[in-house]
Write a protein that binds this DNA or RNA. Structure first.
Length: 422
RNA sequence: GUGAGUGUAGCUCAGUUGGCAGAGCACCAGGUUGUGGCCCUGGUGGCCGCGGGUUCAAUCCCCGUCACUCACCCCA
């Protein structure tokens, strides 16, 4: 019995791994273009970091974290999201990171102990970017433009941007009370889940897909109508910049965020017809997080995270193959293996993808492998040629071959322009 | 955490009112005494997820368990 991987944690195999590498490279390049620099934070953090930032009563903290005591008895948690560690790192390294604004991006695995299903894993991966040190609505717009541009550039179509404002400590509590009162008056029409949600997190009720709840809350007070003047002005400015930039969006006053630390702008890029896991990227402003984490300094901030697995799912299966060898060295007898091995290492050293069969297959078998692997050339080491100090050199695509001296064969391989192009 | 479905060859999947386990693809060899992707012929390869029960006999029926998948919840 072989040992399976941990539930919800998957191997990323070739050729898919090549798509990952390409997408990561594209993200790094795009983020750099926007002036973001990469930050790599540890996968493990003190549990307290997430308990305080994400929110004690969120599902993530209550039941989805990989938390354990290490050998000294300290409670550690594998990061369920990327923002809190970045803020922590920023606070600890202010001097090293320079003046405001600070732009950071990250790429890496996150961990949540949920039941796996399509588009949701226990170890999943995110690309994220965070812009610190400015309250400006242009910062919000920059983050949204960044995301929109990246999704577009990498060929993801059919995504829609939804935005909302969650208010701030000046206006959110009043709205929550309002909504709560409203929901009390409709309690008899809500589903069981929503009756529970009503107490804990009334916003969630607005997000319920049960038909009864949707009807019952059709005329619920809107978050956007309850914003205080500064929040409203901020939100409208963001919308204005987005319109100027030609970035399409829709307001979704019912949008809810899973993490407690969001303020004001919240957004999601959703793909219709994808079922429950239809959010491919999301984020928002979190001006209060630095103080929640115990910093004396208020650090306005906004950021996003992209779900890499979902992103790749949406990009589709496009056939990608493992790269074909440039040359396959065929040995007519095992006595040529040492020489073929030396050639292989020499050619690889010169940047040429080379393969040799070590398994003692027949010449026909070796040719079959060379053909299937898509090798451009085959070099045959055989008795007759060896007697004359040469090798048989075959162009697989052209289907022609000739005997060459060893030096000439190597020259032919290294001279070919078509060999190096990917 | 809840519900449903599925576990048979490396992969995709058939199968039997319970009676020696099948196909396609892949792999290997031969057809070509040293020449490929196609074709033909042959071959290798299975604790029928695991544990228990019923039975003369279980891959099949029953119970349990584990895993995977999908959905719900929630989220990227």
């Amino acid at each position: 019995m072989t040992i399976p991987s941990v539930r919800g944690m998957k191997d990323i195999l070739p050729p898919t791994s090549a798509r990952w590498a390409a997408l990561e490279a594209a993200f790094r390049e795009y983020a750099t273009r926007f002036g973001f620099s990469e930050i790599r934070t540890p996968v493990l953090e003190k549990t307290e970091l997430f308990a305080r930032s994400v929110g004690e009563t969120t599902d993530i903290v209550e039941k989805e974290m990989y938390t354990f005591s290490d050998r000294s008895g300290e409670s550690l948690t594998m990061r369920p999201e990327g923002t809190a560690p970045v803020v922590r790192a920023l606070q600890a390294n202010r001097a090293a990171l320079g003046e405001w604004p600070v732009r950071l991006f990250y790429v890496g695995p996150m961990f949540r102990h949920e039941r796996p299903q399509k588009g949701r894993l226990r170890q999943f991966h995110q690309f994220g970017a965070e812009l610190f040190g400015t309250d400006s609505p242009f910062a919000d717009a920059e983050i949204l433009t960044f995301l929109h541009g990246f999704l577009k550039e990498t060929g993801l179509s059919g995504v829609f941007l939804e935005i909302n404002s969650l208010g701030d400590p000046a206006c959110r509590p009043a709205y929550h009370r309002n909504l709560s009162d409203f929901l009390s008056s409709r309690e008899d029409r809500l589903c069981d889940d929503c009756r529970r949600r009503r107490e804990r997190n009334p916003l969630r009720v607005l997000d319920c897909k049960a038909e009864g709840c949707m009807r019952a809350t059709a005329d619920a007070p809107s978050a956007l109508d309850s914003l205080c003047d500064p929040c409203r002005a901020h939100f409208e400015s963001v919308e204005g910049v987005l319109r100027d930039s030609g970035i399409p969006f829709t307001r979704n006053p019912r949008m809810v965020r899973g993490l407690d630390y969001y303020r004001r702008t919240a957004f999601e890029f959703v793909i219709p017809g994808m079922g429950a896991q239809n959010t491919v990227a999301a984020g928002g402003r979190y001006d209060g997080l630095a103080e929640i984490l115990g910093g004396r300094e208020r650090i306005p901030a906004i950021g996003f995270a992209i779900g890499v697995e979902r992103f790749l799912m949406l990009l589709g299966e496009e056939e990608s193959r493992t790269s074909a060898p440039d040359v396959f060295l065929v040995t007519a007898s095992s006595r040529f293996l040492p020489e073929a091995f030396r050639w292989k290492m020499t050619l690889i050293g010169m940047g040429i993808r080379t393969e040799v069969d070590y398994e003692g297959r027949s010449v026909k078998g070796q040719f079959r492998r060379a053909g299937r692997a898509g090798a451009r050339f085959v070099v045959v080491f055989g008795e007759e040629e060896a007697g004359r100090g040469g090798v048989m050199f075959r162009d697989m695509a052209a289907g022609v071959q000739e005997e060459l001296s060893k030096d000439e064969a190597i020259r032919r391989l290294t001279r070919r322009d078509d060999i190096r192009e990917e």
